[in-house]
Simulated scan of single mutants.
Amino acid sequence: MHDHEIEQMKWMGRNVHVHQYSTQTSVNDGHSHTVQGTTSPVKNTMGHVHNYEGTTTFDDGHVHRFSGTTGPPIYSADGTHYHMLTGTTTFNDGHTHQYTGWTGKNVSG
């Protein structure tokens, strides 16, 4: 399991909430990649989701692109929340990779 810090950004003078994420892909063609980044911000925090996209780490001589939308918030007893992300990378070098992970928790909505 990966641990992630929450991230608050200022945009046009106001706080927006985003989540960091980092997870490994499946092992295909003898290797895996890391999927990591920061989600897009959201305006509405009740039942919200985040978009995300990026490029995997460079492994075995190539990269893959990934993108998607997180699941809805999963709330913890302490009032924080996190999101699940899952998907398949682009087809590069004759194969794809699958990934599943969770964003870091966010304490403000």
Rank of each mutant, 00 (worst) to 15 (best):
N28G: 10
G30Y: 14
G30E: 12
G30V: 12
H31R: 02
H31M: 03
H31Q: 01
H33R: 02
T34H: 04
T34L: 13
V35N: 08
V35C: 08
Q36P: 02
Q36E: 11
T38F: 05
T38D: 03
T38E: 02
T39H: 04
S40F: 15
S40I: 11
P41T: 10
P41M: 11
V42S: 13
K43D: 00
N44F: 13
N44G: 13
N44A: 14
T45I: 10
M46L: 05
G47E: 04
G47Q: 09
G47K: 05
H48A: 06
H48N: 11
V49C: 05
H50E: 01
N51C: 11
N51Y: 12
N51M: 12
N51Q: 13
Y52E: 01
E53W: 12
G54E: 06
T55M: 09
T55K: 06
T56N: 07
F58H: 04
D59F: 04
D59P: 00
D59W: 05
G61S: 10
H62C: 10
H62D: 14
V63M: 09
H64G: 06
F66P: 01
F66V: 03
S67M: 11
S67A: 15
G68A: 07
G68R: 03
T69L: 11
T69V: 15
T69A: 13
T70E: 02
G71E: 00
P72D: 04
P72E: 03
P72G: 11
I74V: 14
Y75M: 03
Y75W: 14
Y75S: 00
S76H: 15
G79M: 04
G79R: 00
G79P: 07
G79I: 01
G79N: 05
